[in-house]
């Protein structure tokens, strides 16, 4: 058994291997899409959003916050759902990893989450802030123009599928 506590460190090695391989970005995107699909069904993120929209996002991440021991805040307004991660346990574990951090580690979150957010009609904005700091800022908007406006404030915007450009 690989302990569930240590999956993220294997994940980190996988990202390095994919990034080192030929067609690295394509390989990473294929993997993100692969893990995104099951999360859009069953009891994953997609099922929460489908039923309850922003409230569903809140409920999904509230469950994650508890199980993954996250230090984060969430907020819902009429325009967006917001998640502010103050101490990401996943990146923190990889900052404390004898194998060293894959600098593309944070990219996977948007990689699997954004396709689900878009599928349900929202516009995701993900500010990594820094790939070596375990914090980030995420919003999902109903309105694309508001999402684009917010994205201009990002310190390190990550929009892997050009969701804010292609509609």
């Amino acid at each position: 058994m690989l302990p569930s506590d240590h999956f993220v460190r294997m994940y980190n090695e996988l990202f390095k291997m994919l990034a080192e391989s030929e067609h690295s970005q394509e390989g990473l995107k294929k993997y993100w899409m692969w893990i995104s699909r099951p999360n859009d069904s069953n009891q994953g993120l997609g099922s929460y959003i489908k039923v309850n929209g922003f409230q569903g996002m809140f409920e999904y991440w509230d469950h994650i916050k508890f199980e993954e021991n996250c230090d984060m805040d969430m907020n819902i307004t009429d325009e967006y759902f917001e998640l502010k991660m103050h101490k990401c346990p996943s990146l923190s574990k990889n900052l404390d990893n004898d194998a060293g951090l894959c600098l593309q580690y944070c990219e996977h979150c948007a990689g699997w989450i954004h396709p689900i957010i878009r599928k349900h009609g929202f516009f995701p904005v993900y500010d990594i802030i820094s790939p070596t700091e375990p914090r980030c800022h995420f919003r999902a908007y109903k309105d694309r123009e508001l999402a684009v406006a917010f994205s201009l404030q990002a310190r390190k915007l990550w929009d892997p599928y050009d969701d804010l450009i292609n509609v």
């Binding site: 690989l2 569930s4 506590d5 999956f7 994940y11 893990i35 099951p38 994650i64 199980e67 021991n69």
Partner: peptide, 10 residues
């Protein structure tokens, strides 16, 4: 706490 769904990820 444990997030056992990481096993689904494996």
């Amino acid at each position: 706490e444990l997030h056992k769904d990481f096993h689904l990820g494996t």
